[in-house]
Nucleic acid binder design. Structure first.
Length: 639
DNA sequence: ATTAGGG
DNA sequence: CCCTAAT
């Protein structure tokens, strides 16, 4: 399977086909439309005129809705165009199944704008010279071609770019932050070869999707330069397109516009990136004042905060249309159903009816890949980074995957529930439905270590730690070494864990590359209220292996129960996913486990001798602690 | 950043 | 595992 980097892997949009369009009342006030004259204009001219006006005023996107006059013009265009046997009748002018509102929404919101812009340019060009008739054949041919081409790319491209709601600078900011504030995010999406069949303008998007290394993120903060932020140039805000189109509209130069379209990525780079950059800096600076731990935590949950920084336009009238139109073309599969209209704003206006009769229709855009650990030298090339990521992904995939279902951020574990029972038929909740891809724990580990009993990472790490850390005064060194060796043979860990193939990678890992789902186009689908919760992804559960338990016990025996940081450093220093809190928690559960009857225990059984050691060590250190407390606070005791 | 403890 | 209060 081939994968291509994309910025939103993680999200799965759910859409309810039967959702109505925005009610007119929800669209907000619009300024009175400019007059569009002349019903005898050539369709292309008319289209161009409308386009020109649209481009003149940002808010005109919405005003079109309110304009009967324009609607009529649009109808005229549509009709004439169809009569002319347009090659793109099923594209720009829709399948005839949508109303004018939908048509306009499409027309004004996506690549059509660019097409329209191009048309406008030609129009003005032509009218200034020989008139329309003079140039007609060639020009129209080009225009039709361009229209078709652009339209053909609309749904796919928009989907990939994932920018639908970013005309507002604030939204742009949020997006920028979303992009750059992750330590590193690489996301994957199946590389369907849809671009090859289409225009060069789409190709440019593909090219724009190259990995970009952003060093600033870390240089400006923690100084951990080994982490790099990865993001896609293709992840450019809609306003880029808008800006360019507007600029070109005034240039009167068709060719230039065309080139501009093709050079999307470059323009993005030049015009927008600096903006993102400065915003990003201020943002990250703010954040990185805090500890890297906090920061990491923030990043882990970033998608949720990003979703709350203005991406869902439910409350913003001006963006309602954008939200609406987003549905029109962002999802290639849902495209045909668009006439029914869907939007986030209507979500709450709709009465949520839960009926088993109603089929639940979901649109799965992508899956979230929880975590990947990648080790790569700082001087490695981006190409090798890509390959490494690829390998890691393949490793995970080949290890077996299962699908997880998240509703309102909570995992639905009961496979036997019906959708209704689980609440998946509830339209209110549907927007918070998500799917994840997870390593399958039942799957056999990759072949290369399936039959070897070689020590795996934890043990290896243990050895390192013991060598590196001089023993404390309390314990005899020889014992340590012996125990280490012993634990080396007790390597259950990697065999039980499907992610073991990846485990090896973070042995000495310097680079931790979490795959974060930076929500993009999906953002507008998610309602805000619960999104904070729904996006709170728990860390994946990683049961302690026996060897890990042993390492923990050993460390606690030596260090005591109040020094979890030291325990972590000593025994799990290189195991990134075990924090000292984890270790403390594990010890807590170990003590509990040791006290209950074996019948009550669950999970991988911990050898009784280990549990015994847990109890005795725990008793010992509790006693020690009590003693020192008593010494420190002698006067508190008598009472 | 760590520790301790409840959930 | 998560979340928090208290260090």
């Amino acid at each position: 399977m081939v994968f291509q980097k994309k910025l939103d892997v993680g999200f799965i949009g759910c859409q309810i086909p039967t959702m109505p369009r925005f009610p007119r009342s929800a669209r907000g006030k619009r300024s009175p439309p400019k007059k569009v004259e002349n019903n005898q204009m050539h369709p292309f001219d008319l289209l161009a005129t409308v386009a020109g006006e649209l481009l003149e005023k940002r808010e005109s996107t919405c005003s079109l809705y309110e304009t009967k006059e324009r609607t009529n013009h649009v109808n005229t265009i549509k009709q004439k165009h169809l009569d002319n046997g347009s090659p793109s009748k099923s594209d720009v002018f829709d399948q005839g199944s949508c109303d004018e509102g939908s048509f306009v929404a499409r027309f004004v919101s996506h690549e059509e704008r660019r097409a329209a812009s191009a048309l406008a340019l030609v129009k003005s060009d032509v009218s200034e010279k020989d008139g329309f008739a003079g140039k007609s054949a060639q020009s129209i041919g080009i225009l039709k071609c361009e229209l078709q081409k652009l339209k053909a790319t609309v749904s796919l491209k928009n989907d990939r770019i994932g920018i639908h709601n970013l005309e507002d600078p604030m939204n742009l900011d949020s997006k920028a932050i979303a992009l750059v504030s992750s330590d590193s995010s690489v996301e994957l999406t199946p590389s369907v070869d849809y671009h090859s069949a289409h225009s060069s303008s789409f190709q440019s998007v593909k090219d724009g999707a190259e990995l970009v290394v952003d060093k600033d993120d870390d240089e400006n903060s923690s100084g951990r330069t080994h982490n790099c932020a990865l993001y896609s140039k293709a992840f450019k805000p809609h306003c880029t397109v808008e800006r360019r189109v507007r600029k070109m509209t005034t240039s009167n130069y068709w060719k230039a516009d065309r080139e501009a379209m093709i050079n999307d990525g470059e323009i993005w780079n030049r015009e927008i990136k600096p903006v993102l950059h400065s915003r990003k800096l201020s943002y990250t600076r703010q954040r990185t004042q805090r500890s890297s731990f906090k920061r990491k935590k923030l990043l882990e949950r970033f998608s949720s905060s990003a979703s709350n920084e203005g991406f869902c336009s439910r409350d913003v009238p001006d963006s309602l249309v954008k939200c609406d139109t987003k549905f029109d073309s962002s999802d290639p599969h849902a495209h045909l159903n668009d006439a029914q209209g869907r939007s986030c704003s209507t979500t709450d206006q709709r009465l949520s009816y839960e009926s088993a009769d109603h089929p639940v229709k979901l649109s799965i855009k992508s899956f979230r890949v929880p975590e990947l650990f990648i080790e790569i030298p700082a001087n490695a090339t981006v190409g090798s980074l890509k390959r490494t990521v690829m390998e890691a992904v393949t490793a995970v995939l080949s290890g077996g995957l299962r699908v997880g279902v998240l509703l309102q951020g909570k995992k639905i574990r009961d496979d036997n529930k019906t959708l209704v029972q689980a609440g998946i038929s509830n339209t209110d909740k549907l927007d918070n439905l998500g799917f994840t891809l997870e390593p399958n724990p039942n799957r056999a580990p990759p072949p290369h270590n399936s039959n070897s009993r070689e020590p795996e990472s934890p043990n290896k790490i243990l050895s390192h730690a013991d060598q590196a850390t001089p023993d404390t005064i309390t314990q005899p060194p020889p014992n340590t070494t012996a125990n280490c060796t012993e634990s080396d043979h007790d390597s259950v860990h990697s065999h039980a864990n499907p992610s073991s193939s990846v485990d090896q990678m973070y042995d000495n890992s310097k680079a931790l590359v979490p795959i974060l789902a930076v929500k993009s186009d999906a953002l507008s689908v998610i309602p805000l209220r619960n999104s904070r919760r729904s996006e709170m992804v728990r860390r994946i559960r990683r049961p302690f292996s026996v060897s890990e338990v042993e390492a923990l016990v050993q460390a606690v025996e030596k260090l005591g129960t109040g020094r979890w940081r030291d325990v972590k450093l000593k025994a799990f220093d290189s195991v990134k996913h075990r924090t000292y809190v984890d270790l403390k928690d594990k010890w807590k559960t170990l003590v509990h486990t040791a006290r209950i009857s074996p019948q009550q225990r669950r999970g991988e059984p911990v050898p009784q001798n280990l549990l015994d050691r847990v109890l005795s060590a725990h008793a010992y250190w509790c006693q020690q602690q009590a003693k020192s407390t008593r010494l420190a606070e002698p006067y508190l005791l008598p009472a």
